[in-house]
Amino acid sequence: MQDFVEAFLNIEIAREAAPILWQGLWQTLLLSVIVVPLGILGGIILALLSTVHSAWVRWPLRVWTDLFRALPPLVLLVFIYAGLPFAGLEMGAFGAVALGFFLNTGAYYGEILRAGIESIPRGQVEAARSTGLTRWQALSLIVLPQAVRNVLPDLVSNTLEVVKLTSIASVVALPELLFQARQAQSVTYNATPIVAAAVAYFILLWPVVRLLSRLENRQLAGR
């Protein structure tokens, strides 16, 4: 027990590591605030494209989506960060993370929004068009708001996954929470900073998990 506290819950070391863990936490939040909207943007673009009834759009879109859903995000990130500079494309850790997340999480948000759009009866578009709205107005004003409501739990769930996924930025030395925790751990030879980081993630994300659990239950009860 003594050893356990010494190794995992060492107050002394926690105090020492606190400042850089704070910095890491802020980086994680900043990163999330940037990559989540970026992914949603990518998702909206893909979802809107999926409403185009043309094989020339449909098939490339499907290949694109499946490609980025099949590739593990870390592989994509390493490829962009460590591979592209060989082709003269140097974009730094932050740029690589932003691009990787745009491609990967965009594909997921896209699939969710597409399912949402497909859940809206055709009559909604027809009603909107019959009142003189354009195709895009009908989509953005009538279909999309309802679609988002229908797939809200999935959107929240995916957003939770995206925020958790920011931890892989540590691999390309972006100084977010996990990276800072590992730095502190390697300096102090003590696991307390990583435990502290885990606690920080948990405190940050537990409310989202609870909310999600309630949303999902409500969705199930509504069936």
Binding site: A7, L178, Q185, I194, Y201
Partner: peptide, 17 residues
């Protein structure tokens, strides 16, 4: 709530202690 990578790192670097 915990990122998988955090759990992996915690188990790998933490348990030996």
């Amino acid at each position: 709530a915990l990122p998988p990578l955090v759990i992996i790192v915690l188990l790998y670097f933490g348990l030996p202690a």
